[in-house]
């Protein structure tokens, strides 16, 4: 038995060293998109009240003009949107240490999140390469996902070491502005992406399909529990928490409208966050999108932000910031 344990330990060490070595030891490009996370956390620390924190995914990073919202409402804005792979639970958890009484949090996640339980994917491991400390924000659901995603991250890192990184110039840390909005794509032409038209070229049958991908008609029950628990936490901290809708690329609009109405109804009925806005109003044609059906281009971003401001004006708390700026304190 002793022989087995000695050999098993040595072998396990070799495997573990290889995996963690490949994931954590090689240097990482400081301008990587995901590195913007560190700047966003700095914003959470330093932005004075009154402030609104927008939380979500890359759709928010690409599709929000925080400067315009600040001008319209007077609130200081922090855009925490970065990567959908981190999951909604993470998006909620990472704010917790920074929340102060009087803060306003607005969630605007993509509709795909409502299908899942809010647990993140291999991005949860990738961010720990840059910020090992971030693991302290992970809830128990994300710990399990973290462990099971180590192999996928290992593969990606190994590929990254063997082949040159293909990160787009529009997706870089340096392209984020002082509010946390990505501006790298503003004014850039729309690259080709695999939308319905692309597939249709090869499979004409697709034209007859009512594709409503990424569009659930209700919120996952598990996710509802997490959202409500977070709402209760925020209420206890004196933080107002809202949820609103994200842009959706037009494609079989009647069906999309039907699904969104059903989703809205479900959100109103089950989520104990204040829901505002009109989901159907955020259905935009393809020309307003950038490189996929989640990321708006410059025009789309502007239209979406204007629409968001309009709906914010209808909510007294969001319409205008209180006059006096509250100094930074906990």
């Amino acid at each position: 038995m002793k022989e087995f344990f000695i050999k098993a330990s040595i072998f396990s060490f070799l495997i573990g060293f290889t995996i963690f070595g490949v994931i954590y030891l090689p240097p990482i490009d400081p301008d990587r998109y995901i590195m913007a996370l560190v700047d966003k956390h700095r914003l959470l620390e330093t932005t004075p009240q009154p402030r609104i924190i927008f939380a979500g995914d890359s759709g928010l990073a690409f599709g929000l003009d925080s400067r315009m919202i600040k001008r319209a409402t007077g609130y200081n804005i922090i855009n925490m949107g970065l990567h959908g792979g981190l999951g909604l639970i993470y998006s909620m958890d990472e704010l917790k240490p920074y929340l102060r009484k009087g803060d306003i949090v607005i969630f605007a996640p993509d509709y795909t999140h409502y299908m899942g339980t809010g647990i993140g994917d291999n991005t949860l491991v990738e961010v720990t390469i840059l910020f090992p400390w971030i693991i302290r924000y992970y809830s128990k659901e994300n710990y399990m996902s973290f462990i099971s995603n180590i192999p996928l991250t290992f593969q990606r890192r190994l590929r990254g070491l063997l082949f040159k990184s293909k990160e787009l110039s529009t997706h870089r840390r340096s392209k984020f502005n002082e509010f946390g909005d990505n501006e790298g794509h503003i004014g850039m032409p729309q690259p080709e992406f695999k939308g319905k038209e692309y597939i249709q070229r090869y499979l004409p049958q697709v034209a007859n399909l009512n594709i409503t991908r990424f569009l659930p008609d209700r919120v996952n029950v598990e996710l509802v529990k997490h959202l409500n628990a977070y709402a209760a936490y925020c209420a206890a901290q004196g933080v107002s928490v809202y949820i609103t809708f994200s842009p959706l690329m037009e494609n079989d609009r009647p069906n999309q409208e039907r699904m969104l109405r059903s989703l809205e109804k479900d959100m109103w009925a089950h989520i104990r966050m204040k829901v505002f806005g009109d989901a159907v109003g955020y259905i935009y044609p393809k020309k307003y999108f950038f490189d996929n059906e989640f990321h708006l281009n410059g025009t789309g971003r502007e239209i979406r932000t204007r629409m968001l401001i309009e709906t914010m004006k209808q909510v007294p708390e969001l319409a205008f910031a209180p006059k006096q700026q509250v100094p930074l304190s906990r």
């Binding site: 070799l14 995996i19 192999p151």
Partner: peptide
């Protein structure tokens, strides 16, 4: 033997899918 076992385990990590 160890080299082969190592390659197999690493093969799992390198080839694993969801």
């Amino acid at each position: 033997r160890w080299a082969l076992y190592y390659l197999m385990v690493m093969g799992i990590f390198m080839g694993i899918q969801k």
